[in-house]
Amino acid sequence: MAGVAVSTTINGDNVEYLCQPDETLLDVLRDRLGLTGAKEGCGTGDCGACSIILDDRLVCSCLVLGAEAEGRRVETIEGMAHGDRLHPLQQKFLEHAALQCGICTPGFLIAAKDLLAKNPDPTEEEIRFGLAGNLCRCTGYDKIVRAVQDAASVMKGA
Protein backbone atom coordinates (compact mmCIF):
# COMPACT_ATOMS: atom_id res chain seq x y z
CA MET A 1 0.00 0.00 0.00
CA ALA A 2 1.57 3.22 -1.15
CA GLY A 3 1.61 6.19 1.16
CA VAL A 4 -0.01 9.45 0.09
CA ALA A 5 2.09 12.60 0.40
CA VAL A 6 0.05 15.46 1.81
CA SER A 7 0.85 19.11 2.12
CA THR A 8 -1.57 21.06 4.27
CA THR A 9 -1.93 23.88 6.78
CA ILE A 10 -2.58 23.08 10.42
CA ASN A 11 -3.25 25.90 12.86
CA GLY A 12 -1.56 28.28 10.42
CA ASP A 13 1.60 26.21 9.98
CA ASN A 14 2.56 24.40 6.79
CA VAL A 15 2.70 20.71 7.48
CA GLU A 16 3.71 17.83 5.26
CA TYR A 17 3.17 14.18 5.99
CA LEU A 18 2.86 10.76 4.44
CA CYS A 19 -0.19 8.72 5.31
CA GLN A 20 -1.91 5.54 4.23
CA PRO A 21 -4.86 5.94 1.82
CA ASP A 22 -7.34 4.63 4.39
CA GLU A 23 -5.93 6.52 7.36
CA THR A 24 -8.24 9.07 8.93
CA LEU A 25 -7.20 12.65 9.52
CA LEU A 26 -7.80 11.98 13.22
CA ASP A 27 -5.21 9.19 13.19
CA VAL A 28 -2.79 11.41 11.28
CA LEU A 29 -3.21 14.24 13.78
CA ARG A 30 -2.87 11.99 16.80
CA ASP A 31 -0.40 9.32 15.75
CA ARG A 32 1.75 11.03 13.13
CA LEU A 33 1.72 14.67 14.20
CA GLY A 34 1.41 14.30 17.97
CA LEU A 35 -1.67 16.53 18.08
CA THR A 36 -3.64 14.45 20.58
CA GLY A 37 -6.09 17.18 21.54
CA ALA A 38 -8.73 15.71 19.22
CA LYS A 39 -10.04 12.53 20.85
CA GLU A 40 -11.49 9.36 19.42
CA GLY A 41 -14.67 8.55 21.32
CA CYS A 42 -16.34 6.48 18.63
CA GLY A 43 -14.61 6.70 15.26
CA THR A 44 -17.98 6.90 13.52
CA GLY A 45 -18.95 10.57 13.75
CA ASP A 46 -21.39 10.04 16.60
CA CYS A 47 -19.64 11.77 19.53
CA GLY A 48 -17.89 14.85 18.18
CA ALA A 49 -14.82 14.46 20.40
CA CYS A 50 -12.57 14.63 17.33
CA SER A 51 -14.11 17.83 15.98
CA ILE A 52 -11.86 20.09 13.92
CA ILE A 53 -12.47 22.89 11.47
CA LEU A 54 -11.58 22.10 7.86
CA ASP A 55 -11.67 25.12 5.53
CA ASP A 56 -14.16 26.91 7.82
CA ARG A 57 -16.40 23.83 8.14
CA LEU A 58 -16.88 21.97 11.37
CA VAL A 59 -16.23 18.26 10.78
CA CYS A 60 -15.39 15.10 12.66
CA SER A 61 -11.78 14.33 11.83
CA CYS A 62 -12.58 10.61 12.16
CA LEU A 63 -14.75 10.98 9.04
CA VAL A 64 -12.06 12.67 6.97
CA LEU A 65 -9.17 10.86 5.33
CA GLY A 66 -5.71 12.19 5.99
CA ALA A 67 -5.24 12.32 2.23
CA GLU A 68 -8.17 14.72 1.87
CA ALA A 69 -6.38 17.46 3.80
CA GLU A 70 -4.16 18.18 0.80
CA GLY A 71 -4.12 21.91 0.16
CA ARG A 72 -6.65 22.67 2.87
CA ARG A 73 -6.73 24.51 6.18
CA VAL A 74 -7.08 22.52 9.38
CA GLU A 75 -7.81 24.08 12.76
CA THR A 76 -7.53 21.99 15.92
CA ILE A 77 -7.86 22.65 19.64
CA GLU A 78 -4.09 23.12 19.84
CA GLY A 79 -4.47 26.30 17.79
CA MET A 80 -7.31 27.83 19.75
CA ALA A 81 -5.33 29.82 22.33
CA HIS A 82 -2.93 32.54 21.23
CA GLY A 83 0.28 31.80 23.09
CA ASP A 84 -0.67 31.84 26.74
CA ARG A 85 -3.84 33.85 26.07
CA LEU A 86 -6.86 31.58 26.15
CA HIS A 87 -9.74 32.01 23.74
CA PRO A 88 -12.79 33.47 25.56
CA LEU A 89 -14.56 30.12 25.18
CA GLN A 90 -11.67 28.33 26.88
CA GLN A 91 -11.68 30.88 29.67
CA LYS A 92 -15.44 30.62 30.17
CA PHE A 93 -15.36 26.82 30.15
CA LEU A 94 -12.91 27.05 33.05
CA GLU A 95 -14.86 29.68 34.96
CA HIS A 96 -18.18 27.85 34.62
CA ALA A 97 -16.65 24.42 35.29
CA ALA A 98 -18.11 23.36 31.96
CA LEU A 99 -15.97 20.24 32.08
CA GLN A 100 -15.65 17.38 34.50
CA CYS A 101 -13.59 14.60 32.96
CA GLY A 102 -12.66 16.87 30.06
CA ILE A 103 -12.43 14.28 27.28
CA CYS A 104 -15.21 15.91 25.27
CA THR A 105 -13.96 19.44 25.97
CA PRO A 106 -11.70 19.97 22.92
CA GLY A 107 -14.53 18.89 20.63
CA PHE A 108 -17.03 21.13 22.38
CA LEU A 109 -14.71 24.11 22.22
CA ILE A 110 -14.11 23.67 18.49
CA ALA A 111 -17.83 23.20 17.83
CA ALA A 112 -18.69 26.22 19.98
CA LYS A 113 -16.09 28.32 18.20
CA ASP A 114 -17.61 27.38 14.86
CA LEU A 115 -21.09 28.08 16.19
CA LEU A 116 -20.20 31.58 17.40
CA ALA A 117 -18.32 32.34 14.20
CA LYS A 118 -21.53 31.70 12.26
CA ASN A 119 -23.99 32.97 14.85
CA PRO A 120 -22.46 35.43 17.33
CA ASP A 121 -25.66 35.85 19.31
CA PRO A 122 -27.27 32.41 19.61
CA THR A 123 -30.32 31.61 21.69
CA GLU A 124 -30.14 28.78 24.23
CA GLU A 125 -31.96 26.57 21.76
CA GLU A 126 -29.54 27.43 18.97
CA ILE A 127 -26.63 26.60 21.24
CA ARG A 128 -28.20 23.30 22.24
CA PHE A 129 -28.89 22.24 18.66
CA GLY A 130 -25.57 23.66 17.51
CA LEU A 131 -23.73 21.46 19.98
CA ALA A 132 -25.92 18.38 19.56
CA GLY A 133 -23.14 16.62 17.65
CA ASN A 134 -20.93 16.60 20.72
CA LEU A 135 -21.63 14.09 23.47
CA CYS A 136 -20.83 14.86 27.08
CA ARG A 137 -21.55 12.23 29.70
CA CYS A 138 -20.48 14.16 32.81
CA THR A 139 -22.06 17.59 32.93
CA GLY A 140 -25.63 17.24 31.71
CA TYR A 141 -24.64 20.13 29.36
CA ASP A 142 -26.01 22.82 31.69
CA LYS A 143 -22.67 24.46 32.47
CA ILE A 144 -21.46 24.03 28.88
CA VAL A 145 -24.43 25.96 27.54
CA ARG A 146 -23.92 28.68 30.16
CA ALA A 147 -20.22 28.95 29.33
CA VAL A 148 -21.01 29.38 25.64
CA GLN A 149 -23.65 32.01 26.43
CA ASP A 150 -21.19 33.89 28.61
CA ALA A 151 -18.40 33.64 26.02
CA ALA A 152 -20.76 34.91 23.33
CA SER A 153 -21.58 38.01 25.36
CA VAL A 154 -17.88 38.64 26.10
CA MET A 155 -16.94 38.22 22.44
CA LYS A 156 -19.67 40.58 21.32
CA GLY A 157 -18.36 43.20 23.70
CA ALA A 158 -14.79 42.75 22.49
Partner: peptide, 21 residues
Amino acid sequence: TRPIRPDGVDKVTGRARYGAD
Protein backbone atom coordinates in the same frame (compact mmCIF):
# COMPACT_ATOMS: atom_id res chain seq x y z
CA THR B 1 -15.44 28.84 47.20
CA ARG B 2 -15.38 28.14 43.47
CA PRO B 3 -11.89 28.56 42.03
CA ILE B 4 -10.70 27.25 38.64
CA ARG B 5 -9.48 23.67 38.77
CA PRO B 6 -5.73 23.04 38.66
CA ASP B 7 -5.97 20.68 35.68
CA GLY B 8 -8.30 23.01 33.80
CA VAL B 9 -6.00 24.83 31.37
CA ASP B 10 -4.50 21.58 30.12
CA LYS B 11 -7.99 20.28 29.48
CA VAL B 12 -9.21 23.26 27.49
CA THR B 13 -6.05 23.43 25.37
CA GLY B 14 -5.93 19.76 24.43
CA ARG B 15 -2.74 19.22 26.40
CA ALA B 16 -4.15 16.89 29.07
CA ARG B 17 -3.14 13.30 28.42
CA TYR B 18 -5.78 10.60 28.58
CA GLY B 19 -5.44 6.86 28.17
CA ALA B 20 -4.83 6.87 24.43
CA ASP B 21 -2.70 10.03 24.39
